[in-house]
């Protein structure tokens, strides 16, 4: 096929557009000025120091980690159940049940969080980190199911039958064959659920009560122009963490594909 230079230039320009705002993060995180504006004023690490000294940030970060780890673990476990059921079994009401499980993917988060909020208030559950976890598990599960479904789908059914045929029980077949083969999917699901939860704002904002998490903390900082450079520093670090996590997720996804002998089609979704 003939190379089309204009299309290539357009694609590269598009990538630049995607990355442009993010490039500003390190630029202004190290810029020696409280005002986010050109021209740049010289190099400083003050904003990182300021950020480091902020106690609330640490608490918020710890809360976010607790939530993200819990949400990742629980949604991946729920994802394993649903993905295994949907790829391996036929059962009555399957499209409806799976549709409900996947629904949060297409439902505005505001509606999910308000619906949860009115019910939690009505039955008298106090808002806390726990209620955020409840909400995050709900919105992470569809992603976990999507990732794990493709992992379970690429498993040849006869592998399972072969193990069974060679004398293993269903339980030991799961442990010896299925689990190791879907492990890359499980790891990607954990990492992506973790990232989604860490990033999520609306549910954390409305279901957290007086507990602060990272995203809510960042949102709060935006009100104070003086705090903006420190947020830029924090953003820089978060972007780095995201890239590392995603690279790991991508690595495991590719390894999973290589292991099951499939063809790489690219992308998480």
């Amino acid at each position: 096929m003939r190379k089309n230079p204009s299309l290539r230039i357009y694609a590269l320009a598009y990538l630049a557009f995607l990355y442009a705002p993010i490039v500003l993060l390190p630029l202004f995180a190290f810029n020696d000025s409280r005002v986010i504006a050109f021209p740049l004023q010289g190099f400083t690490t003050n904003w990182f120091a300021e950020m480091w000294a902020d106690k609330t940030l640490f608490i918020a970060f710890r809360n976010s980690l607790t939530i993200a780890v819990s949400a990742a673990v629980f949604s991946t476990i729920l994802g394993i159940f649903a993905a295994r059921a949907s790829t391996r079994y036929k059962f009555p009401g399957k499209p409806g049940i799976l549709g409900l499980i996947m629904l949060p993917m297409v439902l505005p988060e505001m509606i999910v969080s308000m619906a949860l909020l009115v019910v939690l208030i009505a039955i008298g559950v106090p808002l806390s980190l726990f209620t955020i976890i409840l909400g995050h598990v709900l919105i992470c599960t569809p992603f976990a199911v999507a990732i794990l479904t493709s992992a379970f789908q690429s498993l040849d059914r006869s592998l399972e039958e072969a193990a069974y045929d060679l004398g293993e029980t269903p339980a030991s077949t799961f442990r010896l064959i299925i689990l190791p083969l879907v492990m890359p999917g499980i790891i990607s699901s954990l990492l992506i659920s973790f990232t989604i939860s860490l990033d999520e704002f609306i549910i954390a904002y409305f279901l957290g009560g007086n507990q602060t998490v990272l995203s809510v903390y960042i949102f709060g900082q935006f009100r104070f122009p003086a705090k903006v450079p420190a947020v830029m520093a924090l953003g820089t670090i978060l972007v780095c963490i995201s890239i590392v996590l995603l690279t790991i997720a991508e690595y495991f996804r590719r390894r999973g594909i290589a292991k099951s002998g499939g063809k790489d089609t690219g992308g998480f979704l």
Partner: peptide, 20 residues
């Protein structure tokens, strides 16, 4: 008698070689 207790073994069409 379930499959794992039968005195039979199978060669699958896809061979079902455990890839890991």
């Amino acid at each position: 008698v379930p499959a794992n207790k039968r005195p039979t073994n199978m060669v699958f069409q896809s061979y079902a070689i455990f890839p890991h």
